[in-house]
Computed example of a mutant assay.
Amino acid sequence: MYTPPAFREDDPQALRQIMRETRLATLVTATAEGLMATPLPLILDENEGEHGVLYGHLAKANLQWKAPVIGDALVIFSGPDAYVTPSWYAAKQEHGKVVPTWNYVAVHAHGPIEFFEDEARLFDAVSRLTHLHEQPREKPWAVTDAPAEYIRAQLKGIVGLRLPISRIEGKRKMSQNRPEADRSGVAAGLAGSERNSDHDVATMIPTGPNHA
């Protein structure tokens, strides 16, 4: 991932937060047949390894897990993003030398991937992932709420994955390279957008002269 110094995100806690908040990541593997990719919900276990370990599962019918992987796998976590129009820049009125851009947050996690079919490990991975997304609910659903035989049959249709993160790259492109007046204009423009996702990005634009 191309990351100019102004946009590099190296803080481990910030990187983990981005991964935790990304509800759907993309698993990419290189194979002899070419690149293969699958959108997946994943869970980050921060207590394993230097950078953490990712867990998830694929449908057994998905050919990605059967294709031998060349090198490390890549998981892409895409955070909030928004289009930025030059019309929001104060510089547009000053000299007009401005162009559109896109603000976004992304984390690329690399590591050796393991696929597994062991029922106990699958049950653990599925249970943890379910708990992660059910816990905010008033009455969370648990895997054990379903009949044991039904769950056992469902597990036969999936394959688990484990990816210890060996290398991680983070990028937070939020207009840090623009003058203060331009950043204020971008934040205000996004805050007034009709897109709810733009409002999230608006709160992430750094303000103040120290970011110019």
Results as ranks from 00 to 15, higher is better:
residue 142 A to Y: 08
residue 93 Q to W: 00
residue 164 P to A: 04
residue 3 T to P: 09
residue 2 Y to I: 08
residue 117 E to Q: 06
residue 77 F to L: 13
residue 143 V to W: 06
residue 45 D to Y: 03
residue 183 R to W: 11
residue 130 T to C: 10
residue 193 S to K: 04
residue 171 K to C: 14
residue 16 R to Q: 14
residue 187 A to H: 13
residue 19 M to S: 07
residue 112 P to E: 14
residue 75 V to W: 10
residue 85 T to L: 06
residue 191 A to V: 09
residue 123 F to E: 12
residue 53 V to T: 15
residue 149 E to P: 04
residue 172 R to W: 08
residue 35 L to V: 13
residue 131 H to K: 13
residue 108 H to P: 02
residue 68 P to A: 13
residue 28 V to F: 11
residue 212 A to P: 02
residue 125 A to L: 07
residue 192 G to A: 12
residue 25 A to V: 12
residue 119 E to W: 07
residue 189 G to Q: 05
residue 108 H to Q: 04
residue 45 D to K: 02
residue 27 L to C: 07
residue 132 L to A: 09
residue 17 Q to L: 08
residue 61 A to G: 02
residue 190 L to V: 14
residue 155 L to I: 11
residue 74 L to Y: 15
residue 151 I to E: 01
residue 167 R to T: 09
residue 118 D to M: 06
residue 195 R to N: 13
residue 21 E to H: 09
residue 107 V to C: 01
residue 86 P to L: 00
residue 169 E to S: 11
residue 187 A to E: 12
residue 41 P to C: 07
residue 40 L to G: 02
residue 149 E to G: 03
residue 121 R to W: 12
residue 166 S to M: 10
residue 200 D to F: 11
residue 68 P to Y: 14
residue 46 E to Y: 06
residue 79 G to W: 12
residue 131 H to C: 03
residue 56 G to Y: 08
residue 137 R to A: 04
residue 142 A to C: 01
residue 194 E to L: 10
residue 117 E to A: 08
residue 33 E to T: 10
residue 61 A to K: 06
residue 70 I to C: 09
residue 100 P to H: 00
residue 89 Y to E: 00
residue 99 V to P: 00
residue 129 L to M: 15
residue 88 W to H: 00
residue 46 E to A: 14
